[in-house]
Design a protein around this nucleic acid. Structure first.
Length: 116
DNA sequence: AAATTGACGGGTG
DNA sequence: CCACCCGCCAATT
């Protein structure tokens, strides 16, 4: 497995309860700005085996964009359960809930990360 | 080998 | 707010 994928996994696992991160944010942190689509793919294929908190990942506008109705519902439920308020359209307020990790600590944990 | 496909993002009008 | 376009990139066709 390539290091980028591992970074993404590590970052996602590091999103605390009650917080969310965006696809782009994760990609950038993992060293691939613009690579949001890889995050999509990883989330889609590795959520189960790595027990990723996939429900804490939303798009840049703070929307739950999952297509499958059932999973959409589950994601909202998970978020509500950990205190993240989302409206009827499945949107959360990024100003409140966005997780902004401490980069220094991330480097210790994940190795090389892009300079800011 | 070339085209398609995503739970995306940013810019523009 | 919406529609549209273009960049992104690995896995799958």
């Amino acid at each position: 497995m390539n290091p980028y994928t591992l970074s993404v996994i590590g970052i996602i696992k590091g999103i605390p309860e009650g917080c969310v991160m965006t696809y782009g944010q994760i990609a950038e942190l993992a060293g691939s700005p613009g690579g949001a689509r890889q995050v999509v793919r990883i989330l889609h294929s590795l959520s189960k085996p790595y027990e990723l908190p996939w429900h804490r990942v939303v798009n840049a506008k703070g929307e739950i964009v999952i297509k499958n109705e059932e999973f959409r519902f589950i994601q909202m439920l998970h978020l509500q359960n950990e205190g993240v308020v989302c409206d009827d359209d499945g949107r959360v307020d990024l100003k409140i809930y966005r997780f902004i990790p401490d980069l220094r600590r991330c480097r210790d944990k994940l190795g090389e990360l892009p300079a800011f």
